[in-house]
Structure formats: C-alpha cells, structure tokens
Design a protein around this nucleic acid. Structure first.
Length: 257
DNA sequence: AAGCATACCAACCGCGGAGGT
DNA sequence: GACCTCCGCGGTTGGTATGCT
C-alpha cells in the first residue's frame, strides 16, 4: 500500500495543457500506448507528471470521449445510478459510454444535485443558464469520432471501453430506470428536442433482460445473470441490488426519487 | 460599459488498492 | 509479510466564462 510518491515537482509543468502538449501526448499514446504513465511523459518529452498525463488523456484527449452537453437521458441515468452507487463516479461513468468520471462528477455537482434538492422558491432558482462552452483546447491531432454536442443518444461502448470496463451490455441498464424518470417533474431543461434511437433502447433493454451470458456486470466483479445467486461480495451486492432495482423500476414504472 | 456574482469545468491533490519484489 | 511503485478514484480548487444589475 502506501501513497504514491509525490510527483517530482521540480521542473514539471502544471496547469492548463497547451495544444502542443496535447498533440505530443496524443501522438505518443497513439504510437506507444500508455502502459506506463509514470514513464510516459519522459518518453514523450513532456514536462508533466504521469498523473497529469493520464488525467488529460482520460478526461479530454481520449478519442472516444463524447463532448458537449449531457442529454436528458444521460442526466437521468446519472441521477438513477447515483442513487444506487453513490459517489462512485467511475462506476457511473462505466455505464455512460463516452463520459468520464470527472465530467459526470462535475455535472452532478453543478446541475443534478440541485435538481434533486427540495423544490426551491423561484427566487432561489438558478438565475442563469450557461451556453454550451466552446470546445477549448480541443487538440486537432486527436482522431476524434465526436460530433460536437451530444444529441441525446447514449451510444454503445467502443471496443476500447469494452476492453477496459467490459460494460458493453450494462452500459444502458439504466435505460429502463431513465425512462421511468420521464415523469419527473423537476426538469427545466430547454433541450426538449432530444431524440433517442428507439431501436437502440429496445436493444439495450433486451440486453438488460437477457443478461444470463457473461457480458453483463462482470466488469464489476460478478456475472449479472438473470437468476444470479446470492451475492457474495460487496461488489456483487451492488450489482445484485442494482439489477434488482432496475428490474423493479422497469416492471412498475415507478416514479423515481 | 463596468463591476459583481455565479456557474462551470479542467486540473490538482491525496488516499487506497493492486501487484510486484 | 513487509515494502515499494504505480494506477485509479473521489474530493476540491482556481481560473474563466457568462449573466445580472
């Protein structure tokens, strides 16, 4: 155990990343991968600590990152998942392809938490709504598949994500719960024009039900079979109850929260 | 137009877990 | 088993953009 030794701060750069640094980092990772974050900055010729590189890559430079506003489905999913998982942002992020834990955490603290607070008098409601931020520092070198602001659909996970999180089929397990949130009264989003690909939801719903194969929640430490036996670990517990909750929500179409 | 208040988000910090020696 | 190193996670913060007066 023990703490990671503090990054050698001497001579290492901190603060916002420049486009050039981004370019160097992306180019290096594309060529050599990121098997060793600690060694990476030296190899790439970056004056950053490995931690910083890793964060930059994961939260910003990864090609499969979805940028832009969160769709309502995504926000609903976050709320739902947060109810069940708590502040386990990485676990929540694993179920929202293209979103990072950091981003989800930010969204939670800036939007969703407030949404869930007891209804405020109008005078206490947020006074302004931010415009979507211009994509700053988006490195031109990144082979991004992103198409700008989110349009609403929660996309299936990429192969890379499947490898790293194995959440392919669970990514959208929240869909049933999310749809049950449709009646929630607290939405004030102006994004009323979102569209969800029906076939996508039906597929993912089907996957949720048919999870007796090994592709279910295994990444979280258990196989999420439809007839799972009693959970044996905390992680199993979590997944067990998660699934139970999802199924219950789906069946009863319970209003959430 | 200017100043202030607020919201947002990228990045940092520190901790704990995992795995190797 | 103890120690070390690395990685990943969650909490927090500081800079900046935006809205309001």
């Amino acid at each position: 155990m023990g703490r990671a030794p503090c990054c050698e701060k001497m001579g290492l750069k901190r603060g916002p990343w420049t486009a050039e640094e981004d370019r160097v980092l992306v180019a290096h990772i594309e060529r050599h991968g990121h098997s060793n974050w600690r060694a990476l900055p030296k190899q790439a010729g970056l004056l950053r600590c490995g931690k910083s590189c890793r964060l930059r890559w994961i939260n910003y430079l990864r090609p499969d990152i979805k940028r832009g506003n969160f769709s309502r489905e995504e926000e609903d999913a976050i709320i739902q998942l947060h109810q069940m998982l708590g502040n386990r942002w990485s676990a929540i992020a694993a179920r929202l392809p293209g979103r990072t834990d950091n981003e989800i955490k930010n969204v939670w603290h800036t939007h969703l938490k407030k949404r869930l607070e007891p209804t405020k008098p109008a005078s206490q409601a947020p006074k302004r709504k931010r415009k979507p931020k211009q994509q700053q520092q988006q490195p031109e070198a990144v082979p991004t598949t992103l198409e700008g602001p989110t349009t609403g659909a929660v996309v299936p996970v990429s192969p890379e994500q499947s490898l790293s999180t194995s959440t392919t089929s669970t990514t959208t397990d929240y869909s049933a719960a999310a749809s049950s949130m449709e009646n929630a009264d607290s939405f004030t989003s102006e994004e009323e024009d979102y569209q969800i690909d029906d076939s996508f939801w039906s597929e993912t719903l089907a996957m949720t039900v048919d999870s007796s194969d090994n592709s279910g929640m295994q990444a979280e430490g258990s196989t999420f079979g439809a007839s799972s036996s009693a959970p044996s670990t905390n992680e199993d517990d979590m997944d067990f109850w998660l699934k139970l909750f999802m199924q219950a929500s789906d069946m009863q179409n319970l209003p959430q929260i």
